[in-house]
Design a protein around this nucleic acid. Structure first.
Length: 260
DNA sequence: CTTTAGGCCTGACGGC
DNA sequence: TGCCGTCAGGCCTAAA
């Protein structure tokens, strides 16, 4: 599932390859998806010069010279690939003669539309222990649901939230307001750490190969995961548990020994 | 405002 | 073997 590190990995490849180049054509795949680019977006893309690819949280932004930005969201299963085969191509564009495909079996992805309100970038200065302390203050919702709320912090999904809580030694079901100051400091640092690691390692490709970069290369973060999708704790070897209730609609695995 | 639940969607997987 | 139910989880909206 593309979270901040996966989107950043995609961004770097596309920026390197296409910044400064011109989009020669666009096309909608069939069957299309509900969050397909509008006619206005298609018009803006056609013939535009790409000045950059940027990223905000899990959103990828294609910056067009003099024509604003086009928002891409990969959802669950979305991928942007240079060529490549897929039965689920939803949208394509060409840069010169090279074809870039947006494919997405589950159709949760999106091309175009507006960027929603998002919290600070966890790898930038605005996100720190003070910010997280203020954000969690008085909140009764589980801390995991809060750090996965994109309006509070932009970029963590189930994998990296699970890993950050594990690294910080905090159980996912704890109420936000129950965290002590020292725990909040650990958690803020852990969020940065796991995301930074994920970016350095080119994202995480779980056994289903859901994530591959635009050139088809898998990430390496999955080898360093300590809790997500594992049966035993990567630190102490204890059997991991799943929270009895799903948190934020997602399963939440934790180590009963390492996390309190 | 905060919190929770359900819907969207389809591939993978387990049980019978 | 093959069918069928369940799960997975990005985000959004509605309801409590």
């Amino acid at each position: 599932m593309p979270e901040l590190p996966e989107v950043e990995t995609v961004r770097r490849v596309l920026h390197e390859r296409y910044a400064g180049k011109t989009i020669t054509a666009v096309a909608l795949g069939r069957p299309t998806f509900c969050r397909k680019p509008s006619a206005d977006t298609l018009r803006a893309l056609t013939g535009a010069r790409i000045s950059a690819f940027r990223r905000r949280g899990k959103y990828l932004l294609m910056v067009l010279e003099g024509r604003g930005e086009v928002v891409f969201h990969l959802g669950m299963s979305g991928r942007l690939t240079v060529g490549g085969e897929s039965p689920h191509v939803r949208f394509q564009f060409w840069v010169g003669t090279e074809e870039v495909r947006f494919h997405d079996s589950r159709r949760f992805g999106r091309v175009g539309g507006l960027l929603p309100e998002l919290g600070p970038e966890p790898l930038e200065a605005l996100f720190d222990a003070d910010y997280l302390w203020k954000t969690l203050h008085g909140r009764t919702a589980p801390v995991k649901a809060l750090i996965m709320d994109q309006r509070l912090i932009a970029g963590l999904g189930n994998i990296y939230a699970t890993e950050a809580l594990h690294l910080a030694g905090i159980r996912p079901g704890r109420a936000g307001k129950s965290l002590k100051r020292g725990e909040v400091e650990k958690l803020a640092a852990a969020c940065r750490k796991v995301l930074q690691r994920g970016v350095e390692l080119g994202g995480s490709t779980l056994d289903d190969e859901s994530f591959l970069d635009p050139l088809g290369r898998p990430g390496r973060m999955q080898k360093h995961v300590k809790a997500y999708g594992r049966d035993d704790c990567g630190t102490c070897g204890s059997p991991l548990l799943d929270a009895k209730k799903s948190i934020g609609g997602r399963t939440s695995r934790y180590c009963p020994a390492c996390q309190r």
